[in-house]
Amino acid sequence: MELNGKSISNKTSILNRVKNSSSLGDIIIILVMCTLLTVAVGNKFLSIDNLISVCRQFSFYAIMAIGMCCVIITGGIDLSVGSVFAFSGVVTCMAMTDWKLSVFSSVLIGCISGLAFGFLNGLFITKLELPPFIATLGTMSIARGLSYGITGGYPIGSLPDSFKFIGLGYIANIPTPIVLMIVLAMVFSFFLRKTIAGRWVYAVGGNEEAARISGIKVDAIKILVYSLCGLMAAIAGIATAARLGVGQSTAGQGYELDAIAAVIIGGASVSGGVGNVIGPILGAAIMGILRNGLVLMSVSAYWQQAVIGVVIILAVSFDKLRNKKK
């Protein structure tokens, strides 16, 4: 009997995984939203151009959310991503315009700056034993302040086209940011599901003490996830600067909350131990489609905030109810 159960579960494993994971709820929500929008505004929503622009828009959020997801799986939180997003963006732009570095080295410097902020977060949390909320609240302010400081608050423009390609270009007819998101998602998914360090990320979130006794270097894992989260925020920030053609110290305000929301809508638990990469992408997609739909239906920006809040609560409660029934 047991053998039977096993073979069945093997065959349907992918279907089952989708059915049992919180992704199903998110997919349903996305489909419902798309249907409603098509009915409401027709081709304005369902045109290829619009759909691609929606995807490009949410890919920036999704990239940040993937990093955030790793942090949340360990039971932590990172409030600094919005500021790191801006900081890395302006650092990259300054490197190109003021320091006259090549696009490649500038982007590299930008990424390293994000990684460094994440690394700092990790150090504060593990070595100084600050609660993640406090540590990242601090770095959130530091990174924002630095961005204002080094730019004097002015946007940095006149960027080379080869840089703008990251935000505006196409690879095989797909916008670069979307390609970037897909590649990063695949890398992170592999990392979380297949590598030792990935397994340890879940273990630390599941039970830190048991993880430590099992020989897991808890501190190292935490430093790693915060560094990765900082790096992902940097990538999103650089790509956004490339898309807009300017590096702004005001960019990314409040993005930390969007990233957290995307992760939570995607089914991760703030108490740690659960979550996957698909979740935050779907979460970001839901928010992206919603924003786009509201704009198309000419709902004022003031009301959009409220609607998004309602959707966050609906998406998460949908999940909770379904789990309870099981």
């Binding site: 297949k194 590598t195 879940y202 599941g206 039970n207 048991a210 006794i213 897991i216 131990g273 659960v274």
Partner: peptide, 27 residues
Amino acid sequence: QGLILGMAVRENTTLASLGEISNACII
């Protein structure tokens, strides 16, 4: 101290010996 309750039996049994069932850090 012993278990990660939210994880499967499989993940719990191998948690301390992942190195032995991996190649280049890939399980």
